[in-house]
Design a protein around this nucleic acid. Structure first.
Length: 334
DNA sequence: TAGTCGTGGAC
DNA sequence: TGTCCAAGACT
């Protein structure tokens, strides 16, 4: 098994020669910019995040500006990126840091992890990237790299394997050059030790890799047994008055939380006409959406305790809408 | 522990 | 076309 000192040295030299050095959040890597980028990057590819990060930094250049913003504007900027609780938590984080730490960031790992939306990985990433200090990280990249390099067996999401991976991360993380080291781990996982078609011939750890030596590269990390996702039907109301559309704000919890949307109905309406439908696949279920329209506009509309509004088609750009709802509207409004 | 929570890229 | 999966956190 490769020794920590040797491992660190190899990660650092490989990162210098082959790693990514021009990511927007690297220049400069302030705590706020690192926080925003890390939250955006959760379960989201780098190429997808970059334009969102640039727009975000233009509109919310500081923690204070984010703390002062309206929720609607925050959600509008996040629209299309998915996992919308991240956006709400990010603003919670800004307000938390302003209120609790006078707008500064805490230094200790445990205090960093107390920030809303910041778990163990993100806390370690902030320590490494923003402070260049000791901060172990285990994300999908590190998980893949470690499982293969050290031959870790078992499904990574189980507590036993998860604990073993974090122990490895703690043991193999150095006490200096942490920014470059953490970036090297992620770059290795993202560009060489990939989920499919890894570039083992270019890997600096080919000589030490247990998976490569035992012919188990494609078997590690151990895949989680997958279960079939259920189908659900959703009913949505299309209420149009001239060039305006009736929208409701969705609840704080559940799918598309805090976004605006075509009103969702509890069941298929009886006195309405089917306008169209679309399919959308989430991570845990498949949605069969039915769009209904009324021939006569009621005087009192739908919302009970919900925010609602009539929005002009031209104004929809700056309203946070679910991606498939936006797509449907765009395809049926001209 | 197992679900919930989105969207788009890659193959 | 479907399937996997991506810098996870929270409940």
């Amino acid at each position: 098994m490769i020794q920590p000192k040797n491992f660190v040295k190899t990660v650092l030299s490989w990162q210098a020669a082959h790693g990514r050095h021009q990511l927007p959040w690297q220049h400069p890597a302030t705590p706020y910019r690192v926080l925003v980028s890390e939250i955006m990057l959760q379960q989201t590819q780098v190429a997808t995040v970059i334009p969102y990060f640039e727009r975000w930094m233009t509109r919310f250049p500081t923690l204070q500006s984010l703390a002062d913003a309206s929720e609607d504007e925050v959600m509008a900027l996040w629209q299309g990126l998915g996992y919308y609780s991240r956006a709400r938590n990010l603003q919670k984080a800004a307000r938390f840091l302003v209120d609790t730490y006078n707008g500064e960031f805490p230094q200790e790992l445990t205090d960093i992890q107390s920030i809303p939306g910041v778990g163990r990985y993100t806390a370690g990433a902030i320590k490494s990237f923003a402070y260049d200090e000791y901060g172990p990280i285990v994300d999908g990249n590190v998980r893949r790299l470690f499982c293969r390099l050290f031959g870790v067996e078992g499904v990574p999401s189980t507590s036993k394997v998860d604990k073993a991976l974090w122990q490895l991360a703690e043991d193999y993380t150095p006490n200096q050059n942490n920014r470059r080291f953490a970036q090297g781990l992620l770059d290795l996982g993202a560009t060489l030790c990939t989920a499919r078609n890894p570039k083992c011939t270019e890997c600096p750890f080919a000589d030490h890799c247990v998976a490569l030596h035992t012919g188990r590269v494609s078997e590690l990390p151990t895949a989680k047994p997958k279960k079939t996702i259920p189908k659900r039907t959703g009913h949505f109301l299309w209420l149009q008055k001239d060039s305006e559309l009736y929208l409701e704000k969705r609840p704080e919890h559940g799918i598309w939380a805090s976004l605006w949307s075509l009103p969702e109905l509890g069941e298929a309406p009886t006195n309405a006409t089917l306008k169209g439908s679309f399919q959308h696949t989430f991570s845990h279920y498949k949605l069969d959406a039915k769009i209904w329209t009324l021939t006569t506009i009621p005087n009192d509309t739908v919302a009970e305790g919900k925010a609602d509004k009539w929005a002009a088609f031209d104004d929809l750009t700056d309203i946070g809408l679910p991606a498939p709802i936006r797509k449907y509207i765009e395809q049926h409004s001209r």
